[in-house]
Design a protein around this nucleic acid. Structure first.
Lengths: 219, 219
DNA sequence: CAGAATAGTTAAGCTTGCTAAAATATGTAA
DNA sequence: TTACATATTTTAGCAAGCTTAACTATTCTG
């Protein structure tokens, strides 16, 4: 497996979680920053290798072995993030940036040694779950995207699932961090905005934020 | 810079230290496990990029910028070895194997963070010097290859500069480790063998070992 | 110093992972 | 339901990093 293939299946994996219907050629091309034809090309090649299901003009999906590869890459990514965070004390943005590269040249052996060192953590510093060595990933159904929660309740932030520097800068400045309690004041359906109250500050978040923040209902 | 280029300049750098005259196309090809024509090809391309000095039929040498790139790669390699050794407690053979991959996808930023974490070490766990961020590398003239020392003196082992698993297995079994004192009984010039005494055991080492073990004279 | 052995070069060709441009299919709005 | 906009596919082509095979230069040996 090459770095290109790693990134290709990882992208399909993640995009499928967001929207199966929108895991289309042009969407994947946009994320990977390559042309549509390069994506069509790769999709065909990976279909031959039984990693991807490809039907002309249809959204892309992963086969079971494509799925397992994606989970392996994500596992390595999140283990690196955890490891660099713990040892070197880098920021959430920096660990992502470095892990994005290291994930591709990491042996299963090394990933497992890092996992052992960390005590087999279930999540990384962003709160994202770390797939196990067997390719299982925990789906915590109690976690909901902030863009989709009901207004009028208090929640606890459980994941900051972004990779963008500005995102984390904003979160840091506004005390949006994992474990912090927030009150959801109102959801503006049409404008796709969410009004929250955190430490007595009122903040209006758009989907650039609320699609990356997961919360749990506090009872 | 690509992984191929990293490995190419690293190989020329290391081979040049062993023997400038024998830093030839076929020698480099043998080390990289590619054909002579692939080496000629790459040498030409890197000559255009001003990394390598290439004259037909002559040994390869690095330009100043090729040298700097090689030192950067070696720095990252040795920092990774040191970091994995310290945190994960891997063996000398394992750290080499993993660093061999990681060195290529490591940002200067990350290398510097690792360096800071380790307290700017001057050598890695093999005893090999770590180039500085400015591309300087310490040459300790008091260190001599075991293949070249005079018999009849006691030395201290200062470097085990190999990457071979069997090499380290043998060293481990015979208490050959950094810091250990050894008595050099005899040098057999013709057969290229060295007879040493370590912890009252007499061992005859050939050049597969003595070309990778550096020692310092104990006074 | 000739000739053989060895090393190096050149040429042609392959795969991977892309791009650009042209052709075609799909979806949508009038 | 046509017509257009958009998405996708197809075709041609390129650079990197290789290989194999044929050819040529260098070096070693007798």
């Amino acid at each position: 497996m090459t770095i290109s293939i790693d990134n290709f299946v990882k992208t399909i994996y993640k995009q499928s979680k967001l929207s199966e219907a929108d895991t289309r050629i042009s969407t994947v091309a946009g994320i990977l920053n390559i042309t549509n034809s390069a994506v069509t090309d790769m999709a065909r090649k990976l279909a031959l290798k039984n990693m991807v299901n490809y039907t002309k003009y249809k959204p892309l999906t992963l086969t079971e072995s494509g799925n397992q590869l994606a989970l392996k890459v994500i596992r390595k990514h999140r283990l690196w993030e955890s490891f660099l965070y713990k040892t070197l004390n880098l920021s959430l943005h920096e660990i992502h940036r470095e892990a994005e590269h290291l994930e591709h040249l990491t042996s299963d052996f090394l990933a497992n040694e890092i996992d052992k060192y960390l005590g087999n953590p279930s999540t990384d510093p962003h709160g994202d779950p770390i797939p196990t060595i067997n390719g299982e990933i925990e789906k915590d159904v109690s976690q909901i995207l902030l863009s989709e929660v009901n207004a009028g309740y208090t929640y606890e932030i459980s994941r900051l699932s972004s990779s963008d520097k500005e995102f984390f800068n904003f979160c840091y400045s506004n005390n949006i961090s994992i474990g912090a309690p927030i009150w959801v004041e109102k959801q503006y359906g049409h404008q796709k905005m969410t009004e929250i109250r955190i430490e007595n500050n009122k903040i209006l978040l758009n989907q650039d934020f609320t699609k990356f923040i997961y919360v749990k209902l506090l009872d």
